[in-house]
Structure formats: C-alpha cells, structure tokens
Design a protein around this nucleic acid. Sequence first.
DNA 1: TTGAAAGCGCTAACAC
DNA 2: GTGTTAGCGCTTTCAA
Lengths: 346, 346
Amino acid sequence: MPKQLPGPRPTLEAVAALAGVSRATASRVVNGGDGVRKPLVDKVRQAVEELGYVPNHAARTLVTRRTGAVAVVIAEPENRIFSDPFFSQQLRGISRELAAHDTQLVLLIVEGPDDFARVARYLSGGHVDGALAFSLHTDDPLPAITRRAGMPTVYGGRPSWGVAGDDRAVPYVDADNRGGARAAVRCLRDLGRQHIAHIAGPLDQTSALDRLHGYQDILPGVDPALVAEGGFTVESGARAMAELLERRPGLDAVFAANDLMASGALRVLRERGIRVPEEVALVGFDDMDSVSEATDPPLTTVRQDVEGQGRLMARMLLRQLSGDSADAAGSDSVITPTTLVRRASA
Amino acid sequence: MPKQLPGPRPTLEAVAALAGVSRATASRVVNGGDGVRKPLVDKVRQAVEELGYVPNHAARTLVTRRTGAVAVVIAEPENRIFSDPFFSQQLRGISRELAAHDTQLVLLIVEGPDDFARVARYLSGGHVDGALAFSLHTDDPLPAITRRAGMPTVYGGRPSWGVAGDDRAVPYVDADNRGGARAAVRCLRDLGRQHIAHIAGPLDQTSALDRLHGYQDILPGVDPALVAEGGFTVESGARAMAELLERRPGLDAVFAANDLMASGALRVLRERGIRVPEEVALVGFDDMDSVSEATDPPLTTVRQDVEGQGRLMARMLLRQLSGDSADAAGSDSVITPTTLVRRASA
DNA sequence: TTGAAAGCGCTAACAC
DNA sequence: GTGTTAGCGCTTTCAA
C-alpha cells in the first residue's frame, strides 16, 4: 500500500529522483515502458508504488492534447428521458465500453436553451475528445454545435435533419425501427387480424416516423383513422387508444410504437372490458422488460438491444478518435437488428 | 460569430496580441476583469470574440489545481439502479445544481470489483475536485476509497458503516426514512387496522432498516411474523406479500418499504381477490409517480423529494469545495422531510 | 537506451 | 492598473 503522504501529490520528478533516473525515463515507464531496459523499468515501477504516484491529468492533457474523456449529451425536452429506462440502458452500454478503454464519461444534461450555450462552450473548451449525443427532435441544435466545435460525434438515433451545408454524413447508431415495425404488423396480420390500428410516437422523432412507415409498408393504403399519434408515454398511449376505439370500434389489433404506450392502451382496453388478445391483439416496441413483462397479459413486442447500441456508439467514437486516416476510415452509421418477442398479448 | 479558423485554437497570447495588451491583462479580463480599466476590458473582450477564444481547460487546471468537475459515483450491484427512476431523478437534481455553478459532472458507474480500482485511480488522478456517491450497502468500499484519495465527498443515503478509524463524520443527505415510515404506519393504525404487516427492503441498506425501525416505533412489540424482507423490486414485493398472507391470513394492512414492492404486493392481493383498501389497506414509500399513480388503486405513499436531495448533495459539496475554513464550516449531514400522500390504497 | 531541455497555455506573484 | 516572469507537471524531440 502506498504511503499516505500528507503533503502534495508526488510528481514524476519525485519518482525519477527516487528511482535514480531522469524524468524522461520515468515518463516512458509510466507510459508503457517501451524502449527502457528492464532493471530501470522495475526501479521506476517500484518508486511509483512506493510514492503512490498517479500522473497529473491536466499536465498530461496539456501536452498531449488528449483528455481521455468523452461527453455524453442528453437533451431533456420533456422530462421523458429519465423516467425512461431506455436512456439508462444506453448510458450503461456507453459507460461499459468507455470504462473498458479507460475513457471517462462526462454527462451533459441539456434542459433549456441556456444549457445549449453552456454545452457549446464546454465542447469547445477542450474538455473532451469527442461526444456522444442523442438526437431526439427535428430542431435539435446539437448537431450544429458539435460540428462547429469540430468535435467528433456519434449520434444515437437517426438524425432527422438535413444539416445545412453538410458535406458528410453524421455517423449514428439506430435500431431497425422500420423493419421491427414491419415484423410486428406482419405478425398481427398473420394472426388474421383485419383492422390493425397504430399508436404512433411523436412524429418529429425519426424513430416514431420509421415505425409508422414500417406499419404502412405492410398495410399500404391503410385507413388513416386507424392511426393515432401519442407521445411515447403511458398516458398518451391510453389517450390514443380511447381515440382509436371511438373512431374505429371494430378494430381488432393495435401496434403501439413503444411499450409504454402499449401499456397505456392495455389499461384502456381492460377498463372497457375488451379482452386482450382475444378481441384486440396488442404488440409493443422496445421490450423494456420492466414494462413488457409486468403487464397483464405480458406484451408481445419488438426487442432491440439498447445497451448494445450504447456500446456500439462508444466503440465507433473511440475508433474515430484513435483513427489514423480519420475520414475514410469507416465512420459509417449502423442499424442494429430487432426481433419480435412473442408473449401473451398477441 | 467567431471566425472558424482552420488551424489550432487561439491562445491567450493571441488574444493579448490582438488586443494590444499583455497576456496577464488578457487573463484578468477573461477571468472577470477586476482591476482592469474599462477600455482595455472592452478591447480584450472584442479580441476574444473575434478569435473565438476559449480558455484551455488543462492549462488552467494545471496552475489553479481546480478542475471544475465533480464525480458522481454510482455503484450498480444488482442492476436495480438504472431501472429505478430514483437515481435518475437524483442525478437530475445533481446535474441541475452543478450546471448552475458551471461545474461538470463526470459519471462513474461501478459494476464490479475491477471498477473500484479504476475509480480509485481516477479519483486520485486529480480529474475532479470532489465526489458525490451513493451508499447502498454495508460493505461498500467506496467510502474508504474517497477517504484515501482525500477527496471531499458527499453521500446520498446514510452510510451504514462505522468507518474504521474514522475521526469525523461523513456528510450525507438522506430522507427522513424513519419519520416517513412512522407516518405511514400511524395512518394505517388510525384507520383502525389491527394487523399491520410490513414488507421491508433489503436490510443491509440503511433506508430499509430505518423504515423498518419507523414501523416498529409505532407498533412496539409487533408480531415478527408480520414482517417480511423483500429486495425493493416488484417481484420481491409480490413474493413477500404471498409469504405474509400465508403466515398471517388475517392481516388487514400492509406498509411496503417502497412503491415497487407495494405494486408487487397489490398484484398478489388482486390475484387472490382481496380488495384494496377495503380488506387490506396498503401504503408504499417513495411516491415515484410512474408507479404510485399507475397502480389500481393508486397508492397511498410517503413522498420524498428525490431531486431536491440530489440538488442538496451537489450544493453541499460545492460549498465544501469553495470552503474557506474547510472543516468547521458546516459539512453536516441533512435529513430531508417526507410527507404522506393519500390516494386510494389506504 | 538514456538524459537534457524545450515547451504545452495558463495564472499569480511581483515589479513597475 | 499593467506588464514581466516564473512556474504548474508532463511529454517529446534531440543529442549523447
């Protein structure tokens, strides 16, 4: 166990002195020890141990121009983000991947217009080497900010903007929303359902839009009255369900754009004494197990690997950061697969 | 809008040159401009603007020895933490308070033993000025780590350890768990219930323990068979409820140590056709609205201001960091009040 | 292979 | 008030 010196933390200088070598050699050892003879390496290592030496990060950053940290920018327009396990899981995936590469995670939560300025300043301040961001809404100013700051960035979720004057694609990771939606609706159709409704998410988000498109892919020319827009929340799902029942009492199936809305819909169906899945079959999206497994009946839903997406985002960014030929390399976007999970609701 | 120079970021030197002043004066202006004559201030400000100057954080940290960042350490023993809105809300409170003081939030998620070493290294690396941590379990190694790193730290939740060789108290923020539990049980008793059971949380966590103690305060010498231990999850709540019903079929009220367990209990009660609150009254704890308002019937529960606690933690840490007479100052712990929220379940 | 020395960009005495 | 100067702790040429 290193000595617990009361004074200031030991510097590389001190280590070098104790080991009887130059600061340069000590530095080499601390950074891997290549090109230093074994006995010296050992001596230095021992000195490090004895002194409890830990490199000063600021000093290192100053000269190397790398911070070893990455920002995760989360915009929280409605307060959906935190009540939603979705982001938590993605965050965990990111955290794991970054930790594995000894990279720190700086969390930037954006709540209002002022915060964007703060974030912009932060990103330009050389605090971090890159950024991971979640693109939620069409008018998201983040892309512009990261671009202006010249900060390597990977997005979670397909950005909807066509960035003005954008000459190169922004790399992102997203689930196969459209394909997943297709699978969901196909399942309902194969069950013999004739009037399949859709509770869409907020259509200014690409994920919601893509899922709607998937629904329409399988049901071309479907009655528009069979589609209601929700807000990805339980409450909005309930509202949308009520609306749909009013408009089309004969509907016999519902595909909800996420599990939260599906659970809201389920509540309304039950309140009205409509049996699920006998009278109305229901499929959700996301498979967040805290919801999909807890409902009665459990939800048939489309699973996506959220944590994996987070990990992938981090990995892509890290690759970009350590990238040799930065551009050509391979900062292409990735669409991760989805799978239909059959439970009792359809 | 600042010019978008392609080259390296402008330094203070460049600003000074453009403004026709010394680097020192430029620095003074950038840091508030005290003791610099107005015209010069303006000149420098303009140069900053024109060049799009942003101070280099590493350089500044190197000399000031302050990073302007705070670590938030979250240990994730079971994967409860992220599915639980609790932490998200606390995190949001922390984030808000830190942002208001231009302090960055570095998120450290600890998942395994290896991670503790990583965190220890990080904390000793001078990356951050202080830490906020959540004390979950009795055997949490975190306190020892932060103490060894000499890092100012504020805990969320009353730590249960008697830190070995600890000469001063560790500041923490916690809800009035015991008082809240008392209010809950008192309410049940005042309703005329004779056999009030308790579904406790995992008793290696102080919050669970304190709530149990509160229950016992109101019901001294209560039949031990009326207490079952759960794990703060829906599932464990259901299990505990089943157990209690088996042991004491005559029970007419239940106080669950959190809302999640209450909802699990509710499910079991409903499955058995036991009416709530008519036959069994039920009170939860936390008032996480996504749960307590969504159940049928909605839960009577004990509310605590989780976000406020987060904010408070941050505020206490910041005060400690800017503290003049660091010790005496006032890093005392804080217990935040709880209130009983009456809904339909009791 | 190792060491000497030159900064990285900034702040804070200290002198003017 | 303002400028000069000496580092903060580290990496990295460049010589030896």
